[in-house]
Computed example of a mutant assay.
Amino acid sequence: MTFQLPQLPYEQDALEPHISKETLGFHHGKHHNAYVTNLNGLVEGTEFEGQSLEAIMQATAGKADKAGVFNNAAQIWNHTFYWHSMSPNGGGQPTGALADKIKADFGSFDAFVEEFKKAGATQFGSGWAWLVLNKDGKLEVTKTLNAECPLTDGKTPLLTMDVWEHAYYLDFQNRRPDYIATFLSSLVNWQFAAANYSAATAKAAE
């Protein structure tokens, strides 16, 4: 079994004018695809061949001699999750159980927004901002460097925002805060986050 580049959940121009077709073409078709090609080459003939991305990530996280395998596997996972974290009709606020949980754990939706913006803006260099469900059942905003993913720390990702420069530079140049604000106001897919939260709470209740 070899890894394949997953299709975007929308057309390449579907996020315009916020994220351009050109950005998605490079980001998905070049960057994401390169991680797929690299990982297939790295795992061929090794103990990781035929394993899932999640299994590879868990087995290689924090191991310097397996950094190449981890970085490419995690970047495939992170990017696939990121595409679904956005929607052509995104933005606004969550509803239902996730909205209630955000209010309970952050104090208000606005407080969550400020924390998420801060995580994205203060991630030095390349990385990701996340909304996760901790093992203790509380929501948390966190950030990770480069290819790192909260999944390998036992946290359940609900939503992510890519803050590598290639995610926004063609559209926003060096204005990362503007990209972050646009992500939250016009792109974020709360239905995806809510579905992830529902699945995580159902699993915890088993």
Rank of each mutant, 00 (worst) to 15 (best):
N146S: 13
T122Y: 03
L42C: 03
G125F: 06
E114H: 09
K155A: 14
K101T: 12
P17R: 04
D178W: 01
T182F: 00
W83C: 06
T122V: 08
T80I: 02
H18Q: 09
A194K: 05
P88H: 08
W83M: 09
R175S: 14
F48L: 09
A73F: 10
G90F: 02
G96F: 02
L139G: 00
L8E: 04
A67H: 15
N196K: 15
T201S: 07
I180A: 02
T46L: 07
S186T: 14
T201E: 11
A194L: 00
E11H: 13
G120F: 03
W128N: 11
A74N: 06
M86K: 08
F172K: 15
G120W: 03
E49D: 07
Q75T: 05
F26I: 03
F183P: 07
V36C: 09
E16I: 06
P150Y: 12
A111L: 11
N134Y: 05
G90W: 01
I102M: 11
S87F: 06
N38I: 01
W128G: 14
T46Q: 06
Q93Y: 11
D100M: 00
Q173V: 08
A181G: 07
K138Q: 15
G107E: 04
E165Q: 15
M1R: 09
Q7S: 13
Y197Q: 03
Q191D: 11
A205N: 07
L184T: 08
A55M: 02
S185I: 03
A195V: 04
G91I: 07
S52W: 06
F112D: 00
S126C: 13
R175H: 13
E115Q: 15
E140M: 00
P6M: 13
H31V: 12
A147P: 04
N33E: 13
G29C: 08
L53E: 00
Q7T: 12
L139H: 03
C149P: 04
Q93I: 13
S126K: 11
D162G: 08
N71H: 12
M57W: 03
I56P: 01
L24H: 03
W128E: 10
E11S: 15
D13W: 08
H18K: 14
F106E: 04
L158E: 07
K103A: 13
V113S: 14
A202H: 06
P88T: 04
A14L: 01
D153V: 09
Q4C: 12
P17N: 09
V188S: 01
I76Q: 15
L158Y: 10
P88M: 05
Q12D: 12
D65Y: 11
N189T: 03
Y168K: 08
Y168D: 08
A55Q: 13
D171Y: 08
